[in-house]
């Protein structure tokens, strides 16, 4: 009877939802930080804005495909059930996606807007009325979007954490773990995109900003994973048994090797190595392109693996005594 009900699609969706949240957060922050009344990292903010809505839009599509009756997804929006994390989440995700697309629109340049609307038949006058400049809304949309992006980041964790029957998930640390993992993968994805964009080569102060952001988020994530393990080991029998899945069970290798070491510690080490001389020795920031690429890719892989481990291991954990059919 004990089977896996949520599979890879859910893992991908949780990852993409978190990624969007992180991209929006990083972009909003980059736009908010000012030097001489001008955004200090305007190009970072623009890149983040252009990327942010897409992962969550694709992820929501995958989520709908995963339903038993995908065409009934509209029923999610016929109800609001505050006790159901998924109900709250669907509304939150929709609001966030709308805000993220508006934010993207506010960052489009004049010629980009003209190009998009040139593709729409001229007879569709109603749509052409939308061809307006809302670049003055950037800051407002960013501010409105902040709580929503954090909400989406937390939601992906709460969806699992609020299930009281799965001791692997049901701790008060999973929400924060997923949030910081989401924010760090957002910063990493932004760094990756900026480094790969050869037309507009990334500048050192921009790399430094994103690397700093990532170091902060990875450190916070680490400081949540450690208490998650320690507290779980000091908890009740069911929680301890659930943790055995990663401390001597089917997920031990993938948790400690690919996720914790390669996905968190190695990129953290690379980024700290990059930042160290600039912060403590007063020297210039390295800004190595290859190291940035490596660290950012590893962070993204780590973020994906965290969700993979949690979705699968969580479903295997249970309070139910293991009674089954005799062999």
């Amino acid at each position: 009877m004990h089977e896996t009900n949520w599979g890879l699609l859910i893992v991908v969706y949780l990852f993409l939802g978190g990624l969007s949240a992180g991209l929006f957060f990083a972009s909003g922050l980059a736009n908010y930080l000012k030097v001489d009344d001008k955004p200090a990292y305007a190009r970072v903010a623009r890149m983040g804005a252009l990327l942010a809505p897409w992962p969550v839009a694709i992820g929501s599509g995958l989520l709908i495909l995963d339903l038993g009756n995908w065409y009934r997804f509209y029923k999610l929006f016929m109800h609001f059930r505050w006790e159901s994390p998924m109900s709250i989440g669907s509304w939150l995700l929709t609001a966030f996606t709308v805000i993220a697309f508006l934010y993207l629109y506010s960052w489009l340049k004049e010629d980009e807007r003209t190009w998009i609307f040139s593709k729409i038949p001229a007879s569709w006058k109603l749509i052409h009325r939308l061809n307006v400049d809302i670049s003055s809304w950037r800051e407002t949309l960013g501010m409105i979007g902040f709580p929503f992006s954090i909400g989406v980041g937390i939601y992906t964790g709460v969806l699992l954490g609020a299930v009281s029957s799965r001791p692997f998930w049901n701790t008060n640390l999973v929400a924060q773990m997923f949030l910081f993992s989401a924010l760090s993968s957002g910063a990493a994805a932004l760094l990756l995109a900026m480094v790969l964009d050869k037309k507009n080569p990334i500048e050192k102060h921009e790399t430094k900003f994103l690397v700093t952001l990532d170091v902060v988020f990875i450190s916070l994530e680490l400081f949540i994973i450690l208490p998650y393990l320690i507290h779980g080991e000091l908890s009740t029998q069911a929680v301890k048994q659930a943790l055995d899945l990663i401390l001597g069970g089917p997920f031990t290798f993938i948790f400690w090797g690919p996720f914790l070491f390669l996905g968190l510690l190695v990129p953290l080490a690379i980024e700290v190595y990059e930042l160290f001389p600039a912060i403590f020795k007063g020297r210039e920031f390295h800004g190595s392109r290859n190291l940035a690429l490596t660290a950012a890719s590893l962070v993204l892989i780590g973020g994906f693996l965290l969700r993979y481990i949690f979705v699968y291991a969580g479903q295997m954990s249970s309070f139910h005594s293991k009674m089954g059919l005799l062999q």
Binding site: D66, V163, R166, F319
Partner: peptide, 19 residues
């Protein structure tokens, strides 16, 4: 009304549901 998200199957401590 069921959309087939299977959240209830995950939430049931007794594995009493099937898809």
């Amino acid at each position: 009304e069921c959309i087939g998200c299977r959240y209830c199957m995950i939430a049931c401590p007794y594995d009493a549901r099937y898809f």
